[in-house]
């Protein structure tokens, strides 16, 4: 029981570390918050909305995302997010780092 809690906490830390890359990777095209949540979930990356929205704001304040409020297809106003040029450059570097890290971890764990 105690170990389960430890594992859960560690997984949480692990996921928190990769969320930024996951979000940046899925915003090559415009998405609003809830549609992004669903897209990530469909790909197997379950994320809580209380984590996603603050993260989107943080990434935007860092200049990695751009956003605007729009009404699309006569729906209600929604805030759409898309990766910025700076975000693309950062994502490209992060991808390389991630690949190297994943390879290292694979070597360690196999």
């Amino acid at each position: 029981m105690e170990n389960d809690e430890l594992v859960q906490n560690m997984l949480l830390e692990l996921r928190r570390g990769v969320l930024s890359i996951a979000v940046l990777s899925q915003l090559g095209k415009e998405e609003y918050g809830y549609s992004l949540l669903k897209a990530l979930s469909d790909l197997g990356m379950e994320i809580d909305q209380s984590t996603l929205y603050p993260l989107l704001r943080r990434l935007e304040s860092q200049g990695l995302l751009q956003s605007n409020w729009r009404i699309v297809d006569e729906a209600r106003p929604r805030r759409y997010y898309v990766i910025s040029p700076q975000g693309r450059a950062v994502l490209s570097k992060l991808k390389k780092e991630w690949s190297a890290m994943a390879a290292t971890m694979h070597k360690m764990l196999s």
Partner: peptide
């Protein structure tokens, strides 16, 4: 932030 939460709740 309030507008975004409202939008998300309505989407859900």
């Amino acid at each position: 932030i309030e507008a975004e939460i409202r939008s998300t709740l309505e989407d859900m």
